[in-house]
Design a protein around this nucleic acid. Structure first.
Length: 1047
RNA sequence: GCCCGGGUGGUGAAAUGGUAGACACGCAGGACUUAAAAUCCUGUAACUAUAAUGGUUGUACGGGUUCAAGUCCCGUCCCGGGCACCA
């Protein structure tokens, strides 16, 4: 009988659905295991080939754990609130719920086809009111709590109120806004309700407040830091500016230390932990207050990690946005300062970044006083000081800090040596802390260890400062001025927010006529008719008009899967107590500082409230690598630049005009979005780093030799570079006139360019390129040092060949691969041709799941062939099923057969446990090859093997399982037990080394003692020959391993 | 610049300090076939030698530890990722 994967797969998928075999129940008799995949945003493009990689690995693990007797929770759902659906709604008027539903159904279909063992009855959707009810509920809990630093946990606000009315806030140890006033019991009692509420907002874990935000006019909304990349929005690529706005905030800073400490308890990739630590950016130092000459009562507070260098502080620098700037500017400096502030404010983040090394700033005219030596030091403003870190002001120590040194050198400010170990202050700053202090008042002669505490206690005594811990992390902005998100369950009364009653949840998203801001600039919810809270007192109050950000719904969803239908709680206590936490979490590393930080934060909070049992919700996390498209000549588009819809269209027409590729838009979009590669008969290559510049030129030469055109796209920060077609045209003209092609210097800008060959320029008008908004350069062929380039490994990898006459050509494989229009291989085609089981195994076989890898289906025949061989083990040449009760089941398997089986059991079990799915597939192949050689067809060998392969190829396994006459599904079979005895060999082959060099092998009985092995080895002819009479200094036998003779 | 992770055949990759390159792709040769596809068999790190259980070199580069190093240590180069004026 022939192996026909598609018919088997369809049959079993229907059967499994019918029997609901993936339905999970709370079963106290079994140990639990929770495998979670990061749920997808259901985009219009559907699942791409990269998604399944993680899902397959987690599915294999889930099925494996199930076979090992665990009660496995392996759910799936959708992060279904989000911008694309809303943008689509703006364009088409279709309600986001409708388009989302459509996308979601498509996802469901694709996911089901891949035979994942998800329990769909537990599916969650963040945009479902029954779900976001609980997102809103958690929001309310955050509003109702503050962070108590004494208890080191969140406590109810009511407790704080009681405290205030008893003794004011002087002795309260709680996390609050910096500007919180100190008040007494009587002050508190004398406050109006509004005033009291305003005070409480300074403590609540979520609160509206003024903050510097990333405002994106293109999207009409604020964005979090991780939604902004290189000064433009991650989605859409619109420019983003800094703006001070009133926004809801999450006081994540209260948890900063715990978020760092918690990392020690979880098995997450080191690089990801490192990223989170960096993002939180904890630094320990001191804050120091400087008095200002002529401004009694005004103090400038600075934060420094090097208070020991304070005697070397020769000036202060404020951020241009610092509130004190206006006050401190003297009349003579006013026009200059104002001009500078205006200039600094007008610069986009992109500009700031690209000109980061340029020194700029101006003197305010005022002077501060160094509290340690009472010296008068000038106060400058400069944009190298950030407004939103620390206090937006620094004490500048040019001898110890390179940035201060640069500034001092530029403006001719003094540089004072403060440590006797410091060197070459004329050349650069020396930030080391060795040696003893000089020119440093009372710390002269001390070391760093002695000086620092002395200085801090001095500051504390004089009330001029204190030790302080500062974070890079900001409180998270929690509002978006958008429609398609969770409404904030709060209303405004007398200028302060109040929560709606809990029993009115969910606060449903109201209908609106358009998904755009109102004419007065309010968020879309401002369009909803009669959208007001009706208070018990008969009054109506405005609801909050902004909605929650994308990360709200994903910050707790793993609990909902535990008990997804619960109407009385986000999940029942019983369910949470049983499932506890996520044992294994799989997802992309791109969520390192977004979702994975916020969700940890919310989990710590829920833990404080006693609602969940673990501080950290995911014990082990694995980042699956991205699957990329690849070919040797590729055009690999970068999301950042091309994602924007319009630009895609421009590119489309651009390519069409050039006749490079014919394609339709959805395919192109999908390719671009997922970093797929495609190649054409023309040569297109992306340049991503400086080193590849050489390669480009090699390709260029090769291309010219072949009479082909070369197009190279540089894709970083392209959009912002040149916007005017005239400018582009000018650049092209300049290039044509023989301008230098590229500068191999440190300037990053030199890579953000489009390189095109001369004949391409000649063929197509410069306007054609101007649509791309990039620099254009002509590649000169003779710049290249061929020999040097040839020696580079990256050159070898690219498969370029150097002819004997010194001409470069492309190797044949490249041409062959370019036959198809795209290198994008649709997974559906693969499945249609080879089956789901093959697709699953092949994706695993590509390499370690954590590695990023290109999607090349060339090797799939290996896996496909393996499955057929596996299948054929069960049949004879005539197609009769061999493994049945009647035929061979009673025959005892041979030692060889058992050895093959148990080797496989051992290897596969070990490798699944360490997530080495690629080597599992190898072990299966070895086992099947070996069994074929010995014509094995005994039930006692093949049946356990079917169970082993079940997590990888469930359909195949189920079919064979049934054919063998088993009742029930193979998914509930028992994982075979490894027995060491079957691996024992009577004879063992020792490799024999002489001085570490392998000289031959010797077969000896396994049980032979080392002494006898030695004797036997020395008798061997090849040993004697190699010893050549030399005396044996040492004889090493590593039992079961190796023999080494030292002479 | 700083912090992580890497560098092994033509390719994807294996390798608790113990015969480097398992497994697979590709390629070459062969069998079957009118032919092709499919399938099966053999070979496949490089150089060298073919009478061998042949010899030499080889895991980015240079050193070191060890009986033994892809693996551990020190230094260098390169690639990838993250952060990037964080005081």
């Amino acid at each position: 009988m022939e192996y026909n994967p598609r018919s088997i797969e369809k049959k079993w998928q229907a059967e499994w659905r019918k029997k609901k075999i993936y339905k999970v129940k709370l079963d106290l008799s079994k140990p639990k295991y929770y495998v979670l995949d990061m749920f997808p945003y259901p985009s219009g493009a559907g699942l791409h080939v990269g998604h399944p990689l993680g899902y397959i690995a987690s599915d294999i693990f889930s099925r494996y754990k199930r076979l090992r007797g665990f009660n496995v929770l392996h759910p799936m759902g959708y992060d279904s609130f989000g911008l694309p659906a809303e943008q689509y709604a703006i364009q088409t008027g279709v309600h986001p719920a409708i388009s989302t539903e459509q996308n979601l159904n498509r996802y469901r279909e694709q996911l089901e086809n891949l035979a994942f063992s998800f329990d769909w009855s537990r599916e969650v959707r963040t945009s479902d009111p029954e779900y976001y009810k609980w997102t809103q509920w958690i929001f309310m809990k955050l509003f109702e709590h503050y962070y108590d630093t004494a208890a080191d946990k969140a406590l109810p606000i009511s407790k704080l109120e009681r405290f205030f009315s008893k003794s004011g806030n002087k002795n309260v140890r709680a996390v609050c806004d910096e500007d919180t006033p100190i008040f007494s019991k009587n002050d508190w009692l004398a406050m109006s309700e509004k005033e009291q509420q305003e005070i409480l907002l300074k403590y609540r874990l979520t609160f509206p407040g003024e903050a510097w935000v990333n405002w994106c006019p293109g999207l009409g909304s604020v964005l979090s830091n991780d939604e902004v990349k290189d000064g433009v929005s991650e989605r859409g690529g619109h420019p983003v500016e800094r703006k001070r706005m009133k926004q809801w905030n999450m006081r994540i800073l209260a948890y900063a230390d715990r978020l760092i400490a918690g990392l020690d308890d979880i098995d997450w990739p080191e690089s990801l932990k490192e990223q989170q630590k960096n993002y939180i950016g904890r630094s320990v130092g001191a804050s120091v207050k400087f008095a200002v000459k002529g401004h009694a009562g005004t103090q400038i507070e600075v934060f420094t990690t090097r208070v020991d260098t304070i005697f070397g502080a020769t000036f202060l620098v404020l951020a241009p946005e610092n509130e004190l700037v206006a006050q401190l500017t003297t009349d003579t400096q006013r026009s200059e300062v104002e001009a500078y502030v205006r200039w600094a404010g007008s610069r986009s983040d992109v500009e700031r970044m690209s000109e980061a090394k340029k020194i700029s700033g101006t003197f305010t005219g005022s002077y501060a006083v160094n509290p340690f030596n009472n010296e008068k030091i000038p106060i400058y403003i400069a944009d190298y000081v950030l407004a939103n870190y620390g206090t937006g002001a620094v004490m500048a120590v040019p001898s110890g800090d390179q940035r201060d040194w640069n500034f001092a050198t530029h403006f001719g400010l003094p540089i004072v040596q403060i440590l006797d170990s410091q060197q070459n202050l004329d050349v650069a700053a020396d930030p080391t802390k060795g040696g003893k202090y000089v020119n440093s008042g009372f710390i002269n002669g001390m070391t760093f260890e002695e000086a620092e505490p002395a200085l801090i206690s001095f500051l504390e005594k004089k009330k001029l400062g204190r030790g302080k811990v500062q974070f890079k992390l900001r409180n998270a902005i929690f509002s978006r001025q958008r429609y398609w998100g969770e409404p904030v369950p709060a209303f405004w009364k007398d200028g302060v927010p109040y929560l709606i009653p809990e029993n009115e949840l969910p606060l449903l998203l109201p209908a609106v006529d358009k998904y755009l801001p109102t004419e007065t600039g309010e968020p879309p919810l401002g369009r909803a008719e009669n959208w007001k809270y009706s208070a018990p007192d008969g009054q109506k109050y405005e609801y909050e008009l902004s909605t929650m950000p994308g990360w709200a719904g994903s910050s707790w969803y793993w609990y909902r899967y535990m008990d997804s239908k619960n109407g009385a709680a986000f999940a029942s206590k019983k369910a949470i107590n049983y499932w506890q936490d996520v044992d294994l979490y799989l997802g992309g590393s791109e969520h390192a500082t977004g979702h994975l930080m916020y969700s940890r934060f919310w989990n710590h909070f829920l833990f404080d409230l006693g609602l969940v049992p673990k501080k950290e919700y995911a014990r082990k996390l694995i980042n699956q690598g991205m699957i990329q498209g690849r070919s040797n000549f590729v055009f690999r588009a970068k999301e950042k630049f091309y994602e924007e819809y319009l630009k895609i269209k421009v590119l489309q027409s651009f390519f069409a005009e050039m006749g490079v590729i014919e394609f339709d838009l959805p395919e192109f979009e999908a390719a671009v979005q997922y970093d797929f590669a495609f190649a054409s008969n023309d040569l297109v290559i992306e340049v991503i780093s400086k080193k590849l510049v050489e390669k480009v030129e090699i390709v260029h030469r090769a291309a010219e030799a072949d009479g082909k055109r070369l197009l190279v796209l540089f894709s970083e920060n392209l959009a912002a570079k040149i916007n005017q077609p005239e400018e582009i045209a000018a650049v092209i003209r300049a290039a044509l006139n023989g301008r230098e092609t590229y500068q191999d210097n440190d300037s990053p800008e030199s890579f953000e360019q489009l390189y095109v060959s001369q004949n391409l320029i000649e063929k197509y008008s410069p306007d054609c390129f101007s649509k791309l908004h990039v620099d254009v350069n002509i590649v000169e062929s003779d710049v290249l040092n061929l020999e040097k380039a040839n020696s580079r490994p990256m050159f070898d990898r690219a498969n370029f060949k150097l002819d004997s006459d010194g001409k470069f050509t492309c190797s044949w494989e490249i041409e062959k691969m370019s036959k198809s229009k795209f290198n994008v291989v649709n997974p559906d085609d693969v499945i249609e041709q080879h089956g789901v089981d093959c697709f699953r195994m092949f994706e695993m076989f590509l390499g370690p799941i954590t590695d990023a890898k290109p999607w090349i289906t060339q090797g799939i025949t290996g896996v496909s062939g393996f499955l057929r061989k596996f299948w054929s083990l069960f049949f004879d040449e005539k197609g009769n099923f061999l493994v049945s009760e009647r035929l061979v089941s009673e025959v005892e398997p041979s030692r060889d057969e058992l050895r093959v089986l148990h080797t496989a059991i051992k290897k596969v079990t070990e490798d699944i446990e360490r997530f080495s799915m690629n080597t599992c597939v190898s072990h299966f192949m070895i086992a099947v090859n070996d069994l074929r050689k010995i014509n094995a067809s005994k039930r006692a060998v093949l049946e356990p093997l079917v169970i082993l392969v079940t997590p990888f190829a469930p359909h195949l396994a189920e079919e064979l399982w049934q054919k063998m006459g088993n009742a029930g599904t193979v998914c509930d079979a028992k994982w075979p037990v490894f027995n060491e005895d079957f691996l024992k060999m009577d004879i063992i082959t020792y490799p024999v080394q002489i001085n570490g060099k392998h000289r031959g092998n010797i077969e000896v009985p396994t049980e032979m003692p080392a002494g006898e092995v030695e004797k036997l080895v020395l008798e061997q002819e090849f040993v004697q020959r190699n010893l050549a009479g030399a005396a044996v200094k040492k004889f090493i036998v590593v039992p079961g391993r190796i023999v080494n003779i030292v002479i």
